[in-house]
Nucleic acid binder design. Structure first.
Lengths: 264, 264
DNA sequence: TTATGGATTCCGTTCTGCGGAACAACTGTT
DNA sequence: AACAGTTGTTCCGCAGAACGGAATCCATAA
């Protein structure tokens, strides 16, 4: 199945399709999964057995569900770079200082992923938790990151993910985005004015290590609170200070890896 | 490869072997991974391409590493049951009240997995983070869970994972463990006296929903602090109160699932 | 009991994932 | 500059493995 030169394994993809199905619909029965993926039940069964054998799927009565082993892998991914962990305290501080939601976002495969999320006292509870994947063009963090990438890489990402309009304010034009990124580069700070979610503004600054961008610190909150001078000066200043300190930590860090391998 | 009636898929296992390798040794080059798994480079390459295509692996220069997409799956697993999320605040409270490390542990495939971990003010920093997998026989949480399982299930778990001695105090005898579990059942509280890690004690209580065990709340700390009456009365009482409240929440919960599906 | 819906096992065929070898892209060396 | 040397990528023929369909098993219900 597939083009002549498909250097990729179908079976693995299928297995992960099964995992994705479980992720999307939660605990499900075999036939439900088979239906959804349009696969023979015998095949689905085999995939589920395999995943179960590996502890990536478990059963709850007659339902299959995600295995908790993924938690371990998720943490491993989130700590794959020791620098990520150093950002946590800064995110926490930003959340406290601003009272809003603060995040640390990293780019992977052209998407932004929330590696740390902390909510300040006034922050709205929302489902934007750790692991969430977002488009880069519509978020402050994403723009802070893209602004530090060479044009060609930005193009690759746009080609892959497009510029979908998430709200009426989302930038959907390539040229317009280039201009915006240019502005971010000059300012050193990226803004998001209801471009990602209606009624939510955001500010972000890049975090650099050696030459290149490690990720971005971001603060987000209701547009009626994050506005005016506070939005354009005070919060950005806090964030620049945080990013600065962070960059020092990260660049001259003692990479003391406190790994733990017990039962795998 | 494999027994005559092996109802499981080799290719998928191999792909996940690659993932595990990355998890263990961090960013690595192709040849390193191929060597370690004793696979042809072409094969390894194909697996890595596939995983990369799925965003479960990414490259950092000439190294391969875990993709951040696992973070999302990890979170999905950790929140697969809405009840897990309700435990978080209780874990937090226990950590604050006791000053020690508090956890919520769930059994999956015969192992205990830390679903929530919070550290109190006095708690020792250690690498026992979320996602950590532990043997059930040597931890307070594990014993609290096993005590509520039928004998045959306990046997299955022992058969699969054995009773390895993690310290000099670990229970390694099957009969002795049965007795201990009996005591836990009567008391309603499980103790761990340096059985898992030298110098660390723990207390745990089961959390039930309807008939069966959802998981266990546990508190752990240095054995010189967690001792005497405080260890055997005060902390257990706090935990029983917490578990009780929790069980009410969990049993009569409003399962308002605030899921988010954006870019997958 | 039979019927029904689902999960599991069996089996023959096909196709796909496999390793080896050839090729390409770098790096540093003489 | 030509060169080994090293690592990553692509090609290719074949063995073996994953596939779907059918048969079987296992509940629960009628």
């Amino acid at each position: 199945m597939g083009e002549p030169n498909d250097e990729t394994i179908q079976t693995t993809k299928t297995s992960l399709e099964v995992v994705h199905t479980l992720q999307e619909i939660g605990p499900a029965r075999l036939s439900e999964i088979a239906d959804r993926l349009d696969m023979a039940e015998s095949t689905t069964h085999r995939h589920l057995q395999t995943l179960r054998d590996l502890r990536y799927v478990s059963r709850d009565g007659d339902r299959y569900q995600l295995g908790l082993r993924f938690t371990r892998l998720g943490r491993a991914a989130r700590t794959r770079d020791p620098a990520y962990e150093m950002t946590q305290s800064h995110v926490q501080e930003l959340a406290e200082e601003t009272g809003e939601r603060a995040q640390f976002v990293v780019e992977d495969h052209g998407l932004g992923i929330y590696v740390h999320v902390e909510t300040g006292s006034r922050a709205v509870r929302a489902g934007f938790g750790v692991g969430r994947q977002i488009h880069l063009h519509s978020s402050s963090a994403g723009k802070a990151i893209l602004a530090n990438y060479p044009r060609e890489r930005v193009d690759e990402i746009i080609d892959r993910w497009g510029l979908p309009a998430l709200t009426d304010h989302t930038i959907t034009d390539r040229e317009e985005l280039y201009d915006e990124l240019e502005a971010v580069r000059e300012r050193g700070v990226a803004f998001n004015r209801k471009e990602h979610v209606d009624g939510i503004n955001g500010t972000a600054v890049p975090v650099r290590r050696d030459g290149d961008v490690l990720g971005a610190l971001a603060v987000a909150g209701p547009s009626h609170r994050l506005t005016g001078d506070q939005f354009e000066q005070e919060v950005p200043d806090m964030m620049l200070a945080a990013a600065n300190e962070l960059e020092l930590n990260v660049t001259y860090a003692t990479p003391e890896s406190a790994d733990d391998h017990i039962v795998e």
